[in-house]
Nucleic acid binder design. Structure first.
Lengths: 371, 371
DNA sequence: CCACCGAATGTTTACGTAAACATAACAGCT
DNA sequence: AGCTGTTATGTTTACGTAAACATTCGGTGG
């Protein structure tokens, strides 16, 4: 009997089989012969429910104009057949994939990963999936490659977590209907950008240290080729200049704790250095180690502020005062912005900044002279 | 002037504009009138090239039976129209999406992230895209939710980076044709599993320390609810028992550096503790700090081995001897396994182990008594 | 010289869905 | 009763691709 064992090649599939098993007695032989049909289609459901495929579609999409009675029948049929809408057919029909592509370099940095995660979560909440477009090396060729792969990809929009100058050469190849939002860039005049407010955060850090009474603030900068580092450095300069303070020489690291340590050896030797703003927490960690080894106490002799607020920052010795980046918010805003663009509600370009919050811990205090 | 400030709702986008700009004179009027078609279809290309759509399809897929002459014409037409195959239509027609879903919890742990990255890279190399299925909280409900979202998703296979007991309740809902591969689990009898060889790695660490002359090896374990931690602990016990050594009491952390520090305070107080195997590098870091603060030198007084080989491990004080996990290889093998399953070439279940390599640095040495 | 072959290309069809349009049934009104 | 409007449901069609089948054509062997 069973509505399932009907045809030629395509028996009902495990779903139905499982349902049978549950029902006890179970139907006899004809399950799983040859290749198993992947899923039931609307037509199958319609047949079983005794309605048209269109009605199934209406139920499936929650459209009005279906009797409660009919709806129940359709739902029952769906359940029995284990019906799942075919997303390829949907995408083809609707002309959209409900998918957002995310392009990023190595997932080795906390920021990228946390942002990605937030994007995925926000997108899921909006009914969108996230497809990962890995770019092995941050060269224009590689980026171009990722974009060109992307063109054949089922994606309605793209969020780019990387610096915009690498994007420039690649953009040309973007399909026209795909919207782009960029993280970590200052190209708000050309793209839609969402980013942490590097400038405001840095300013808060510098002001905090000056307010404590420090004459000036040294800066342990990130690598010169990073835009984020560059912007933090610029903001540090601006904040000092604005306050009319002397500008100490720049000390540069490469984001790593090791580079922070090396730079720290230099800074520890200078008696006049009482306050340091490190461009990220890892370098701050290395700095703390160097200062400690040279007998310069933190915060009694030297104050240190970091950037990022990585989970370990509160376990540093001493717990680090740092700028908390709200990656979750950045990710959320990215998704929001990209969806708005897709719906053509938002402006084509412009920058949205997410404030960085200064988290006060134990690595800052008034300078020695003031105590 | 700018080709950008043109029309109604949906300008052609950077692609067309840029292409024109490059070509100089450019074609005349009839482009982009009213709503712009997202992409050209095969039919459009066929019309322009003066062939049938099927021939375009043949060219697009590199099928034989097309004259070089015709092929060139078609390619030219494709280029002119900026043709890109519509992946939804392809997926619908072919019955596969060329996409792999990855389910994982928080991307907060290095291991998950690195594995994900490797999966994405390997998948890209095979022409597959990777869709991220985030699961906010590791509860069965959440996992079930992710899987049920996944069912409507355009995915041919799933790689699960999490512990299998959370998977169990959820699997029931998986569409029958979707293949699953699991990372980080010991359920090789029920699923296809790829994982780092926790047992072999641990064994190597313990043997290394015993070979140096230590009487026994203490263990700073990970949280009890982690299978990976559990297996490392089991392997540590087995290795010591096998060597006929005394089994010191277990010290437990929660993976964090802070917990390693707390545990370290305990261990530092024991004169008889000369060798510690920490279940991950973060805890080893905390341990190093605790030992340092209590005047116990590493490696002169105490030897320490970690697990993971995080990038910072080589910058620890001293550089940490640890077990290198080859996440890239794990990811690669996952993709390989899942593709094999899809092609029905491989076995349904079974475990593939990726060796963990002991990286010797400066945190291990013979015990004090031996020097 | 014609039947036949294989290569190149064209035509038909189906994949599963959902918009657009069509119809049927029925209630309310004149 | 007959008309109109509304609601529930069915039918047709198109989305873009590619498999299956059909056709054309130039050449080859009998």
């Amino acid at each position: 009997m069973e509505a399932v064992d009907d045809t030629t090649v395509n028996p009902g599939g495990p779903t139905a089989a499982a349902a049978d098993a549950g029902r006890g007695t179970g139907a006899p032989a004809p399950r799983r012969r040859g290749r198993v049909r992947a899923t039931a289609s609307m037509a199958d459901v319609a047949r079983l429910a005794g309605v048209s495929a269109q009605t199934v579609s209406r139920v499936s999409n929650g459209y009005p104009g279906v009797t409660e009675e009919t709806r129940r029948q359709v739902l029952a049929a769906m359940k029995e057949l284990g019906y799942r809408p075919n997303s390829a057919a949907r995408a083809l029909k609707r002309g959209e994939f409900r998918t957002i592509g995310v392009i990023t370099f190595t997932l080795a940095t906390t920021g990228n990963v946390r942002t990605l995660e937030a994007i995925a979560n926000s997108a899921a909440r909006e009914g969108y999936a996230v497809t990962l477009l890995p770019v092995a090396v941050p060269t224009q060729d590689e980026v171009r490659g990722a974009f060109s792969r992307l063109e054949e990809l089922a994606v309605d929009a793209v969020i780019v977590i990387m610096e915009v100058h690498l994007l420039d050469a690649a953009t040309v190849q973007l399909p026209p209907h795909v919207q782009v939002v960029v993280v970590d860039s200052d190209a708000g005049d050309r793209y839609t950008v969402v980013d942490t407010d590097q400038h405001g955060g840095t300013r808060a850090a510098v002001r905090h240290l000056l307010d404590l009474g420090h004459r000036t603030v040294w800066h342990l900068a990130g690598p010169a080729d990073s835009f984020a580092a560059q912007r933090r450095t610029d903001a540090w300069r601006a904040a000092l200049t604005e306050a009319g303070r002397e500008l100490p020489p720049l000390v540069r690291g490469d984001w790593s704790a090791e580079s922070g340590y090396r730079a720290g050896l230099e800074l520890a030797a200078r008696e006049d250095c009482t306050a340091v703003f490190a461009a990220n927490d890892q370098m701050a960690l290395g700095l703390l180690r160097a200062l400690h080894e040279h007998g310069r106490r933190v915060p009694e002799d030297v104050s240190v502020v970091g950037f990022d607020d990585i989970p370990e920052a509160s376990s540093f010795l001493p717990p680090l005062t740092t700028l908390h980046q709200d990656f979750a918010e950045v990710g959320r805003l990215c998704v929001e912005a990209v969806l708005r663009k897709m719906r053509q509600e938002g402006p084509e370009r412009g920058t949205t900044l997410v404030p960085a919050r200064l988290v006060l811990r134990d690595s800052t205090a008034p300078p020695p002279s003031r105590r």
